[in-house]
Amino acid sequence: MARLGLRPTDRTAYLIIFLTTIGLWGTIEYKVRSVDRRTARLERKVDLVLESLGVEYVDPALDEVDTLVREGKKIQAIKRYRIITGANLSEAKDAVERMEV
């Protein structure tokens, strides 16, 4: 480090900045995951309420996915669902399987 012209105090400052950044990143990631879990729980609850009321809600953007499901093209339906919604593979698979019923 001496060749770079950094004094020990400079290295300490960079280390503190680096560790603070890592800590903040971890905190933000934890919060985002927490919000994702809460959102998923709320979505499941809304789905249960709709199901208990006998209401079927189909998002107009998902008409293409619904058509693929009815045609028996499950894999293409999952892929299209992921593109439209940004869901991960597991979420898309669960959603498409719910559409099959």
Rank of each mutant, 00 (worst) to 15 (best):
L15R: 13
W25R: 10
A95I: 00
K93C: 05
I16F: 08
L24H: 08
I16R: 12
I84V: 07
E71D: 05
V58C: 07
T9I: 11
L48H: 15
G26S: 09
V32Q: 06
V101R: 13
A95Q: 01
R82V: 10
Y30K: 12
D47H: 12
V55C: 06
E56V: 03
D94N: 14
I16T: 15
T12K: 11
T39A: 14
G54D: 02
K31H: 14
L4P: 06
E29D: 10
Y81H: 00
R37I: 14
I84K: 04
L68N: 00
E97A: 07
R33W: 08
L4Q: 10
E64K: 02
G23V: 03
V35M: 05
I17M: 15
R70W: 04
R80M: 04
P8A: 06
G72P: 02
K31F: 07
L42P: 08
E51K: 06
Q76N: 09
K31A: 15
A13L: 10
L24K: 04
V46I: 11
A77S: 02
L19V: 15
N88E: 05
P8L: 04
K73D: 00
L62A: 01
W25H: 08
E64L: 05
V49W: 07
E97R: 03
K74E: 03
G26C: 09
T12L: 06
A92H: 02
R44V: 10
A77R: 00
E56I: 02
W25P: 04
V69I: 00
R41M: 14
V49G: 04
L62Q: 00
E56Q: 10
T27S: 14
A2C: 13
G54N: 02
